[in-house]
Design a protein around this nucleic acid. Sequence first.
DNA 1: CTGAATACGGACCTAACTAGTCGGATAATC
DNA 2: GATTATCCGACTAGTTAGGTCCGTATTCAG
Lengths: 150, 150
Amino acid sequence: MLKLTKKADYGLMALKYLAEHPETPAFSAKDLADAYGIPPQLLAKILQRLTKTGLLRSHAGMNGGYALARDARTISAFEVIHAIDGPLFITSCFKGAKSCELTPSCTIKEPLARVNETIAGVLKSISIQDLIEHEPAADKQKLVALTLGA
Amino acid sequence: MLKLTKKADYGLMALKYLAEHPETPAFSAKDLADAYGIPPQLLAKILQRLTKTGLLRSHAGMNGGYALARDARTISAFEVIHAIDGPLFITSCFKGAKSCELTPSCTIKEPLARVNETIAGVLKSISIQDLIEHEPAADKQKLVALTLGA
DNA sequence: CTGAATACGGACCTAACTAGTCGGATAATC
DNA sequence: GATTATCCGACTAGTTAGGTCCGTATTCAG
């Protein structure tokens, strides 16, 4: 069905929330979970993962919590999704290094790999900041090149 | 992980195979399954589904089998995926009519919906025929517009 | 008319994955 | 040292994906 996991959704929501409140030094996992009605312990694990991949900075203790490690404009949706859901493969084939068992019979792998790159490109072109600024802006249109040639 | 199901892969492979052999009037599910080492009964069900959605024509009895219902150029990868995997939703939210329970707190739904449309556009721009012709062709590059504005 | 080849379609099984929970350890602040 | 946090692994329940089995209907050849 080509859909993100809820975890990725939650992660994006949390990052967006942090980006929307730059004045506050840090939010605890519970704060963020309450803001969206997300199970706190689940969100906590997501935030921990985002911390480990360097997208967030964490601080334990009172008045601790999470904050963006970088500017919201420099964090792409792709990074968030990749950190939480792992590598992005549109094909069920090539999971990592070992190509699919059907090779060389699987002939659609190569064309779909380009589709995969295109989708990744789309997600890379979207920053957390973009999620906030969703005003009508025809000049903000972005063009993504889809190359089918080998 | 944002990936297609194997069923969709199998469907695309089968359609591509049919498109590559226009001279043959029909291939049985078993023929196609043998060509790729796919479980025959699984592929059979996929082909049946593609028939029901009008992408294939079927014929029972001896020398029966499946054939493309339309020209390979007019069948998009999107149609195939949609027929097999169902509607394409990148967000875990809005499954069909009922929006996610987090509404209105879920604020990323709207921006991601546009990403969703972009990806759908990419898949719609790719025909079965395109899967066959994967020669280096810079002039075959396609541009996909990604609009983030509301 | 009979039988082989084929499409059709439901029921079923199993492994994997997703979402979420629980419990405890560590760390920082007051 | 009590409180507020992050951290992290183990566990459970529900869903989905992938695949199988079996019976029925349809078409064609001999």
